[in-house]
């Protein structure tokens, strides 16, 4: 366990000055900032919206761009980035000759990639809420303060995270095996397009294909129901966290993690 923690900290130390790490920070920051600027200049047309409508209009473009387009790309890039660090520096032989078990070294890298995606998605929640509230403060006519979207937003992004694990683990393994960018990127890109088409056309077996999962996660956002006896009588949303595609994603992540470890052991180091 100590070896794992040390390796994990070292992963952070090594990547903190790379694009892989900063893309996980800049992507949510810039995306939320652009939508913030858009709202700021179009605030007049939004005054009549209810608080909840405002939040939904604010969060939806961010979610849409992120979930459908950018997230699979970000996952491919992060998986590549944490591995290419070692390929480029020719350091596999060094990290596997440290007095730390090979499993710890491998697992730390794997979970660090997961952490980066989690971190990025958590920042999306944080920045969406932060910029929304900031809008409410500088444009008091926009009634952002009357509704809290935090819980539902956190659930949606957590669902995204779970949905991304399958892709992430496959891309991680590809990037571990191939030292160039083209192969994992090319395979990933083609799969993302195929996954998008499958999920977009609601093919019944799309849940078995991990690259369809982010788009399917978007669809998991349940339809608005009338709150009924809800005190504010506002509609509320449900997020079905553990749908069958999420289970497939989790199973793939576990299987690929184990398979990857044996590949690393068998492959030794060139």
């Amino acid at each position: 366990m100590k070896g794992f923690i040390l390796s994990f900290r070292s992963e952070f130390y090594k990547t903190r000055k790379t694009m892989g790490f900063w893309s996980a920070v800049l992507l949510p920051l810039l995306l939320c900032l652009f939508v913030f600027i858009g709202f700021f200049y179009k605030s007049d047309g939004l005054i009549n919206n209810s608080s909840m409508e405002l939040w939904l209009k604010f969060a939806a473009p961010i979610l849409g761009v992120m979930g459908l387009l950018l997230m699979p790309m970000l996952i491919i890039f992060i998986a590549y980035s944490v591995n290419s660090l070692e390929h480029k520096a020719d350091t596999w032989k060094t990290i596997f000759s440290l007095p730390i078990s090979k499993l710890s070294v491998y697992a730390a890298k794997y979970f660090y990639a997961f952490f980066l995606v989690f971190f990025c998605l958590a920042l999306f929640v944080l920045f969406t809420i932060g910029f929304g509230n900031l809008l409410g403060v500088i444009k008091p006519s926009l009634k952002f303060s009357e509704y809290s979207i935090a819980s539902i937003l956190a659930q949606i992004y957590f669902k995204f995270f779970l949905a991304s694990l399958g892709i992430l683990s496959i891309q991680f393994l590809l990037s571990l095996l191939f030292s160039d960018f083209i192969k994992p990127m090319g395979i990933g890109f083609v799969c993302v397009i195929v996954g998008g088409i499958l999920a977009g056309n609601s093919w019944q077996y799309a849940y078995l294909f991990p690259y369809s999962h982010p788009m399917m996660a978007m669809k998991a956002l349940g339809p608005a129901k009338n709150g009924g006896n809800h005190p504010s009588a506002m509609p509320h949303f449900t997020v079905d966290l553990l749908t069958k595609d999420t289970w497939v994603s989790l199973v793939i992540a576990v299987v690929v993690f184990i398979a990857g470890y044996f590949i690393v052991l068998r492959k030794s180091v060139k």
Partner: peptide
């Protein structure tokens, strides 16, 4: 150990 060319992170 030092194997072949040194393994160094060039961005650090």
């Amino acid at each position: 150990s030092l194997i072949e060319q040194p393994a160094i992170y060039l961005h650090l």
